[in-house]
Amino acid sequence: MGSYIHSIEYYLPTSTLSNAKLSQEFPEWEADKIEEKIGIRSRHITSRNETALDLAFNAANKLLEGFDKKLVDFVILCTQSPDYFLPTGACILQDRLGLRKDIGAFDFNLGCSGYIYGLAFAKGLINSHIASNVLLIMAETYSKHIHPSDKSNRSIFGDGAAATLISFSSIENIHKFELGTDGSGKDNLIVKRGGMRNIEFSNQDLPENYLFMNGPEIFNFTLDIVPDLVQKVLLKNNESLDSIDFCIFHQANKFMLEYLRKKMKVDPAKFYLNMLETGNTVSATIPIALKDCLETGLVKTGYKVLLVGFGVGYSWGATIILI
């Protein structure tokens, strides 16, 4: 008894923000240098009235074109840009997607590690016979958290959503997980406005109350955590980097991923790096990358793929899936 990734679809907003456009707004920000450094040329950005839930709906709808929605018996939504404090976005999706009413639904709030945790939830639900077909949706609109004057974060983050169907299988294709948390890093990637702690900030248009990321500290965090995380998940699954066919890490930015890859001595031929036209879509980067890899043939049936997520929280996780 086990679980497997049945299918993935993703949806990106139609509007885009190019480096050229950013350079027009910020003349000191050279488009070529941004692309070379972070590996991003353009990113998709939601319109004023388009939300993470809309992106989630579109991604899920696309996926359900190829699957009988009556068979979906659990919906999980991962977002840090919810439409409302309440009700839960996944409940709204159940209704908008026309799913059965006798199913479970919940949201969880994680960023770049979210996909790994979502897979862990889905596997647990399936293996405990609570569900057989879990619809896991990652939907993020960080652009709405970023102050217009923040050229650095506007360069890095893009909006997007990805829907994954995880289904019951006679064998286990989603292997063991390694998860981690260190809340002491909370101040290094944070949106202070909008919640209850600093309720007065929501009425102030101060850049510091929007999304704040201490890039160098996040860089240090990844160097501290990721190589060890990879070793632990490989060990737990009796695998090695040599026995893994392909690696998909959270697509944070090119500079960070290249440095991690070199530090861990991962063969570049089996290390995915592509956020050129999407930017960092937070929890959606891994499923978007996995879908692209499946479509382009970089990942094939029978491959063992290492998935690694890390970021805001701090929170991190990794697993190995069999395609």
Binding site: K33, K37, S152, N214, G215, P216, E217, F219, N220, L223, D224, F255, M256, Y259, K262, K263
Partner: peptide, 22 residues
């Protein structure tokens, strides 16, 4: 510059094994 900060941090880590904060 801000773009050079990460480069310098990785340079120090890679060549000298030094992890620095901003």
């Amino acid at each position: 510059t801000s773009l050079q900060t990460l480069t310098l941090m990785s340079f120090l880590d890679e060549h000298f094994g030094i992890r620095v904060k901003v």
